[in-house]
Write a protein that binds this DNA or RNA. Structure first.
Lengths: 348, 348
DNA sequence: GCCCCGTGTGTAAACGATTACATATTGAAG
DNA sequence: CTTCAATATGTAATCGTTTACACACGGGGC
């Protein structure tokens, strides 16, 4: 591999001058500039980022810790992150971490010297364990919050979104509304459940434990939870699934049992993944601007990096939006599109 | 940040000894070992990987170049990569690159000194441009091939898979079989088209241009291509979509036009994404072991790294498997399961 | 008592860049 | 002609590690 020394030797200049020209820092003559650029180009010199970051103590890389890479959700989040990262000249170092404390600590440690900051997404973790990290690098918590205000965090407006959807179901006349929950250890799932209950109570309906079925955010989980619900007597008249994958599983189970949607059973999901509107019937859902979630997390992290982690901590939330399609009946719009949320402000 | 020097000073030892103990290399006394480990632990010392990799010239990081992070496909690929990478103590540096030559070259350059090798996935690119890279680091091409044998490459058995599916459709009696193609610049898409034509010719059917509609691998693309097909007279009796997303769009369009599947129109996809069997009717598809694709790519790359890029180049393909569900009719198995691949339980 | 060897430790040179500081060269002002 | 400043370049320290080499010490074989 050709180094800066090689270029210097070839150009009969010192490494300092070469460095100055290539970084366009400090003074140099026009002749020198041309010479060095020509030589560097000819020798196909590429600076060694590792060496550079050692002396500048900037890696221009962001660490991303994910609980598990599953489904469209994560690829969208990553896309949003990569977009903003690249716009700011940063790379993404991605790592799946075991959700336990040891795993996440090990992961962050192994990133020391490789990254300037970390976005940690670990909804399953009680995120306190992140607090006594030995690191002084900025950390942004995604989809979970630290107990105090010690870390920046970005979450979805889960509770409000769920509440809006359930309120909508209530407004359509439903009284027995079931929910397919996610894991209780999952922050998003817990918040969505909270919104569901809140909406019911606001409508004067007492939440019943038997209408709250546990799923695991997969289609299969939604499928079997729905089978259980169908075995009930009386049946619920509406199912609110804590994410779209489970709602899709629910649709599949209902179809198999020849239960008509939305006539006999309304179904709603959460996330509004692109597929939702191609379901049969098109699935009502709570739209989450996933891509922007990732983008915003990176923005927050970059802010922390610029201020050397010495900035007031923020706790932000991105807003959701109700998307009503045919699976909930009511207003049978012909082919409803999710509204564009590109420029949406992530209101706190 | 505490460095090895700080530890050395605190333990009243030289940095060399500290390094030896911490890496368990070279000789040291038991007393020294305990002392240094204690001090390092107490001071929460974490080695600076950047500095280490500068001297060892190993980064233990793999670069991953992706065309665009979209859909479940990519998150699965990344998961497979991360799994194998982590098992071997490697990290993943992920970057979305513009598919043009300049973009991919810039991306690889900017990774110099950060990674030990690169997996480049750029099906849209004529991958020759990768050949005259200034880098001597190992590169594995994913879902595309280099013209010569200069680079390792890993692809899907696209042609064979498509051919099998179309042959199956033929065996069900279909004569007018349409295809919804992907972009002609996409390697996978081109190969799948080739398989489609091959199967038709083998069956004595002459491929017709009018039955080959262009899509873009999205649901929306499949949707509108299908509308065009429905306007034809006579209509085709079967649609083979070059990926599942487009097949799902097709199902959606057929439903809207009240065309019964599979009775009036058989539909098949490619990829067998998890959702496929939750469609209505469950979608026949060509199963691709996506996760393993990523895993295998990383294995190949690691092999190249171990042998310092001085190894015979390989060109591998991962096999697909036909998964027949109800959307193609024929053998209406009650609840057809995909055969178990990578231990997947098809428990619905 | 001498030599040799193994064991434990320290010194210092890398790795490939950036950059503070010193130095050389110029031109202009006095 | 001297002086000063501006400009261009070089020298060398530095970042945080690893590791080749040197060195000190002690014990065993002769």
């Amino acid at each position: 591999m050709v180094t800066i020394k090689d270029v210097a030797r070839e150009a009969k200049m010192s490494v300092a001058t070469v460095s100055r020209v290539l970084n366009d820092s400090g003074p140099f003559s026009e002749d020198t500039r041309q010479l060095i650029r020509e030589v560097a180009g000819r020798m196909r010199y590429v600076p060694h980022s590792g060496a550079r970051s050692l002396i500048t103590s900037k890696t221009e890389t962001l660490g991303v810790l994910l609980p598990d890479l599953y489904g469209e959700f994560f690829s969208e989040v990553i896309r949003g992150m990569d977009d903003t990262a690249q716009k700011n000249g940063f790379h993404l170092l991605i790592s799946r971490a075991y959700a336990d404390r040891h795993g996440i600590e090990t992961a962050i440690k192994s990133m020391r010297g490789r990254v300037d900051g970390v976005v940690a997404m670990s909804p399953d973790l009680d995120s306190d364990s992140l607090l006594n990290l030995p690191s002084t690098i900025p950390v942004v918590l995604l989809c979970s919050v630290a107990r105090g205000n010690e870390l920046d965090s970005l979450t979805i407006h889960n509770c409000r979104g769920a509440r809006e959807m359930v309120t909508h179901l209530v407004s359509l006349g439903h009284k027995r509304i079931a929910i397919i929950k996610g894991s209780p250890r999952n922050y998003d799932a817990a918040e969505r459940l909270r919104g569901y209950r809140m909406a019911l109570r606001e409508a004067g309906i007492v939440p019943e434990a038997i209408l709250e079925r546990e799923g695991d955010f997969t289609e299969a989980g939604g499928y079997s939870a729905t089978q259980a619900l169908l075995a009930m007597n009386p049946r619920p008249t509406a199912i609110f699934a804590a994410n779209d994958s489970m709602a899709i599983g629910a649709l599949s189970a209902l179809r198999e049992s020849a239960v008509q949607v939305p006539k006999e059973m309304a179904v709603a999901g959460f996330d509004d993944i692109p597929l939702a509107r191609f379901m049969d019937p098109p699935l009502s859902s709570v739209h989450v601007p996933i891509c922007e979630l990732g983008a915003r997390a990176v923005e927050m992290l970059l802010h922390g990096i610029i201020h050397k982690n010495d900035h007031p901590r923020r706790r932000e939330r991105v807003s959701t939006e109700l998307v009503i399609r045919r699976s909930t009946g009511g207003q049978p719009a012909e082919r409803p599109q999710p509204r564009t949320l590109n420029g949406e402000k992530a209101s706190v």
